[in-house]
Structure formats: C-alpha cells, structure tokens
Design a protein around this nucleic acid. Structure first.
Length: 514
RNA sequence: GGCGGCGUAGCUCAGUUGGUUAGAGCACGCGGCUCAUAUCCGCGGAGUCGUAGGUUCAAGUCCUACCGCCGCCA
C-alpha cells in the first residue's frame, strides 16, 4: 500500500481572529503537507485544519454581540478560512466543530467509550473558571481563589457530570511514549509529557449540564448534557476524513502528524491518547510541538494590543513573504520573534538580493544573448565549475525534504540558499557576460546559461513547499509545467526550450520598518 | 519546592560521541565585476564561548556550585 500521511493543525478557537502565531502553525503544517505531497503524491496526503466553535467563551462572545452562537461562528470561522486561503494554506479539510458530520461522529465516539464502561457519572463540587472552562483545585489557584491564567475569581459550582477514565490508560500511554522516542518532538516536550504522566491523573470531565450551557454537542446517552468543548474539539482531527473514507480510522489515522503549540501539549499528550484508546482508535504518529511567535520581543496578546494580523503582511509585502520569514527565522519547537524590521531585512537580503536578483540576471542573460532560447542541454560534468554547480543542485529537493521531515524548516531554506550562493558564485567564476563579447566563445556561454536556467528550475521546485506562489512565478518565467519541474537536475530543460524575459520578483524595500 | 532548558562576535544563531589557530548569516569597512533589483563576488575587524572551581595530555563540549532568563510540574 502507498505510504500515507494525515496532517493537522490545532482546531482554532474562533472567538478572536487569527494572529501571526496561529498563522505560523498553519504555515508550518502547510509546508510539511506540501513537501509530503511532492514525495507521496497528492492523493496520499490529507491536511486538515478548522475551527473550534462550541463552549462557554464562544457563547459569551456571541452574546456580547447580540447574535446567536452559530451566526457568530459562521462569521468568525470564515475569517480563519479566508486568512488561510490568503496565505495559501492548502488544506484538504476545513472542519468546523458545528458541522453535522462532526457532531454525529463525536456522538459515535462517546457511545464507544460509554459502551466500554469508560464513562461514568459523578456528583462533583469544585472551583470553576469560566474563562478556562475548567475546574481548578485549591492548590492550582492564586491566593484568594484567583484563576492564574485569567486573574479573576473562580466560582464554586456543584453539579453532576460525566467523566472519562483517563488514568486507566496512563500506563499504556506512558509506555508508548517511552517506546517511541520521537512520538512527541522536539525532545524537550517529550520530557515534559513524561513528567506529566509520571503521577496518577484525574479523570476528565467531559460534559456540561444544559442548564448551564446549551452550546455544545448533546450527549447521546443523556439529553440533559452537552459535551465539554475540549472533548468535542479533538475529534475534529478525525471526523471529516473518517466520514468520507471508511478506511481512514483503520489505515490512515495512525500516520497522523499533529502540529500544535506548546500551550496545548498537556491536553494532547495526556488526554487525547486515552480518548483515542478508549474509542478503539490507534494513536497518532507524532505530536509536533512548536513555541510562541513573539512580536518585537513581546508576547503577543490582545490586552497589550500588539497582535499582528498575518493577512495585512501578505497585503503589504506580497505573497509568500510572511511565509518565508516565519519558516526561515523561527526554529520549530523554540520561541521565535516577529518584527517588521526583521522582516524587511530578510526580504531585502534573501528575497530581493539573493533569490530575486539571481532570477533576474539569469533570465536577462538568456534573453540578451540567445533570445531566451536554450541552445544546448545542461550538463552534470562539463568543466569543474559546471560540476560544482551540478553537485549542489543535484538532490537539492531531497536534502530539503529531509530537513522538513525533521521539522527543520529553517534548515531546509538554508539549504536552498546555499545552492543559490553557489549559483551566484558560478556566474562570477564563469563570467558569461565577458565571454559573450567573443563570438568564438558563445557555445560556452550557451552551456553556462543552460546550467543556470536548469539551476533556477531546481531551486524553484525546492521552494514550492515554503513559497508556492513564488515557485509558480519562477516556473512560469521558465515555461515549465509540474512534470518538468519535478525532474532531477540535468533532466529538466532541454535544448530548444524557451524562457521568458526577466521581471522583478521582489523589488527592494528602501525604508525602515513603520 | 521538584524537574528541565537556555546564557557563544553589534544582532540572530551553528557548534556531532571532549581534540589542530571557535564558525555562519545579517550589519559594518575595503577591494573587484557589471549580466542583474545600487544587485553579485572576494577580503577584513571584532568573542577571556554567563561566573568560579574541578576532571583530563586536551573542555564552548563532561562534573560541582553560583548568577541571570525561561518553561513544565507541585
């Protein structure tokens, strides 16, 4: 059977619009998905994202605007969808937890766990934070009964609720993590997860009484309750593909790559695996945990008013620029920093000077000396300069792909830029513009330009997962279709091929950050 | 309080299992080229590798303590 992979971002809670941090996760997952599609074929990769739309916070946000929750999330979910479309996040599934097929699926999973005896009813009294939508123990609270993340008092609530047996599966999950060293990566987060699982866990409250909250999925075995939003949301990773492909759960789900932020490590490492096991599903393949994207050195937050809107950067600097910046600058797994100043520096140094200018000089010479036509095939051996160029261009995409699979997006891009460096040096070394002054040397000039054009093709192809629009633009200038774009170095462009004249891809930005 | 991470050139960071004069990019200075988006290529300066000890023939790289920043758990 063909190798398959299922890739997910977190399901975004849509009570506020996406910021650069949520965009980063979508972009990293998208680059990963695109890279996998190039290797495994489009049909063997599914990439899922979406919005989390139930729960108290959504209900309250809707109430504040005087609209029904569904109307509210119709609008806010669409904002996410448009943002991802604008950033060229090529998802296969955009799941909304209010989709009927999702709701039905969640109820099926509840039935499965219920039938297995993993769900029980218990009267419960506890300290509840509305902001967090969860109960706290005394020890977790700040003095005076203050919620540590919302900095406001919790409420004492007494009610009966349904619980899922989490601790029952703790040993099994622990063992799985120990036996699969890269199950949670990077490793630092694996260690944290092992820590969390080292001691007995409380079971997970998975219901809310309708008397308190109606905005959720009704429990199939008790009409007086809805499902707790966290339980509901996890299944968004599975519901849509499982509804459409009967073999998804048995054959595909185990290949899942979950891209998540470090803030939800605990829920994904501790609660999600028991939920799966209890419902009779296998575990996913990897939990791929990333850090924060700060803004000018500060944590992005609504209260400090420094929330960067990803779509505005797309509009201001052009397609792919935010993608390039985040994937090049942020080390996956560590916190990164976003600033317009840095963005412009990267833009000028890497995109305008290295990539854009290289494209421009190659196509200009091709047009000037040969009317845009290749008059010979590129060569792998040739002269020492040619061989050095071929050496770095051959297998470039494979080297990049290997980095992407390790989530080292920055290193993948570095590898492409190393190839660009060699290509720029090659022009200086061989000086085709000097040789062209001598009629007798035109055949050598033709050879050099064939090699350079071919190099540009390989670079454009390798760039696709990170910068799909730019990749397409370069390939259009080269008049290359998808099939030719995928060919190894030396086997793509042929004698007689014609390319278009140069057009600037990334005009320099001569201003300071505003 | 427990566990863990980080602290290397002005900035952002690489530095495998300890081993020749500690590296890259950006920024800066000088030189070269002119195909190209004042771009490209070459050269250059600068770091007591957080502090203090220790192990070793040899430590940024291992051990201990301390300082600073951060995370997770309680």
């Amino acid at each position: 059977m063909a190798e398959r992979v299922h890739i997910t971002t977190a399901i975004f809670y849509c009570n506020a619009p996406p910021h650069v941090g949520s965009a980063y996760e979508a972009l990293a997952a998208d680059a990963f998905a695109r890279s996998r599609r190039r290797r495994l074929g489009r049909a063997n990769v599914s990439f899922l994202t979406g919005t989390d739309e139930h729960g108290d916070k959504i209900r309250r946000a809707a109430q504040a605007e005087g609209v029904p929750p569904r109307e509210f999330t119709d609008r806010t979910s669409a904002v996410f969808r448009r943002a991802w479309d604008g950033l060229n996040v090529a998802y296969d599934y955009f799941v909304r937890t209010t989709d009927p097929e999702h709701e039905k699926f969640v109820q099926q999973m509840l039935e499965r766990s219920h039938a297995r005896g993993d769900i029980y009813f218990k009267d419960y009294e506890g300290l509840y934070c509305i902001g967090c939508e969860r109960f706290y123990t005394e020890k977790e609270l700040l003095p005076g009964g203050i919620c540590p993340s919302h900095n406001r008092p919790v409420e004492r609530i007494s009610e009966g609720n349904y619980f899922l047996r989490i601790d029952k599966y703790r040993a099994q999950v622990l063992e799985h993590i120990q036996r699969n060293p890269d199950f949670i990566r990077p490793e630092r987060y694996r260690n944290e997860a092992l820590n969390m699982l080292a001691e007995p866990l409380g079971d997970l409250c998975i219901s809310r009484p309708k008397s308190r909250l109606e905005w959720g999925i009704e429990l199939p075995f008790d009409h007086n309750y809805v499902t707790y939003v966290w339980y509901d949301a996890f299944w968004a990773y599975v519901s849509a593909p499982a509804s459409r492909d009967p073999n998804f759960i048995s054959e595909v789900f185990a290949t899942t790559e979950h891209f998540i932020g470090k803030d939800i490590l605990k829920t994904h490492a501790v609660y999600w695996p028991p939920m799966l096991l209890s419902a009779g599903l296998p575990l996913f393949r990897h939990l791929d945990v990333h850090g924060w994207v700060n803004f000018g050195g500060q944590r992005m937050s609504k209260s400090s008013g420094n929330v960067a809107d990803p779509v505005s950067y797309e509009a201001a600097f052009g397609p792919d620029v935010l993608r390039y910046f985040l994937l090049r600058e942020v080390v996956y797994g560590l916190d990164g920093d976003f600033s317009e100043q840095r963005l412009i520096e990267r833009y000028n140094a890497d995109l305008a000077n290295d990539l854009g200018n290289f494209t421009s000089r190659v196509l200009s010479m091709a047009a000037r000396y040969f009317g845009g036509e290749l008059t010979c095939d590129p060569v792998l051996e040739g002269e020492p300069d040619d061989a050095a160029l071929a050496d770095v261009m051959s297998g470039l995409e494979e080297r990049v792909d290997a980095q992407v699979q390790e989530l080292a997006f920055n290193r993948g891009l570095e590898a492409i830029w190393q190839a660009l460096d060699v290509a720029n040096k090659y022009i200086v070394q061989t000086a085709p513009f000097t040789l062209a002054k001598d009629q007798a040397k035109l055949p050598r000039v033709a050879q050099i330009l064939a090699n350079l054009t071919e190099s540009l093709r390989v670079v454009a192809a390798a760039l696709e997962p990170f910068m799909p629009v730019t990749s397409r633009r370069i390939l259009d200038l080269l008049q290359v279709d998808e099939t030719a774009a995928a060919a190894p170095y030396g086997r793509g462009l042929k004698q007689g091929h014609k390319v278009k004249p140069a057009t600037p891809l990334f005009p320099r930005i001569d201003r300071k950050a505003g």
